[in-house]
Design a binder for these strands. Structure first.
Lengths: 139, 139
DNA sequence: GTTTCATGTAACTTACTTAGTTACGAATCT
DNA sequence: AGATTCGTAACTAAGTAAGTTACATGAAAC
């Protein structure tokens, strides 16, 4: 998200993984590796060579957090429905009973995340930015 | 959950961590360590010495998944709101914007989990158990 | 009261996952 | 051609969780 807001703020030109890595205090390769999924989903585009780098693939109003989450392969809930003891009825019952919950919960979370766009986050940032001033903008 | 359903099915007597560990193919110490939180929350009770072991602390109808989740120290969502670059306005904006989502999502999940009780899971198990028969009940 | 059984917990080992790093090929612009 | 930047493989380091061993503590049985 941090990186994406930066990319929203500088839509006119591409940012290199080197620059993006600096923003979040990490390594260019980690950045490339992490946002590769975003590229595959069309959320960002990457260009090689001189003047290359990363840019938003479409308007930030059209990029929802649900898409970002999915593109990064994130799970919405911190538990899975993979059986660990196949054939155990207790486990099957637990998984089945929780599955209704899981499905509805994931639907709800996805629905909520799909209503928040990158533009919303960027607007929120801009508000704070103009309030506090450029000098405080560390990183 | 697996362990708790077993304990629901054998409310009359205590189960040792040894037995519980067998159910989920793990180690007695791991079991004790894991469900220590459940004991502290009163969801289960433990007794030392001869004939000791673990039992439900109260009726399974009065034990909700929300309580279990909280007692185990589980998080309901797979991301945190801890700032990693304190002072960065971008990060602050992202966290603030997501916080509304997080708070409502957690409230929703907790609400849903509080409506599912251990008795519900056990009843589901019992249905399957009677349907398929005792011979299939591996572990 | 001693023996047996079971939890409570510390300490250590092992396995796994993720982040970080180095290296280099491929693509692109000047 | 040379400089730049992504793409990706391969390796290292760090952090986390599970598994294991060991032993003290407490409780029941005899």
């Amino acid at each position: 998200m941090h990186i994406l807001v930066h990319m929203t703020e500088t839509r006119e030109h591409a940012l290199t993984s080197e620059q993006l890595a600096t923003f979040i205090h990490t390594n260019p390769v980690v950045v490339r590796r992490t946002i590769a999924g975003l590229r595959d989903a069309g959320i960002v585009t990457s260009a090689r060579g001189h003047g290359g780098g990363w840019q938003l693939g479409r308007a930030p109003e059209k990029i929802s957090l649900a898409e970002i989450s999915a593109a990064l392969g994130e799970t919405l809930l911190p538990f899975s429905n993979e059986p660990e003891s196949p054939g155990c009825l207790v486990e099957q019952a637990v998984i089945a009973a929780l599955d209704d919950f899981r499905i509805e919960a994931e639907r709800l979370l996805a629905e909520k995340l799909s209503r928040i766009t990158l533009a919303d986050l960027a607007a929120d940032f801009r508000r704070r930015y103009e309030l506090i001033g450029v000098t405080s903008h560390a990183v």
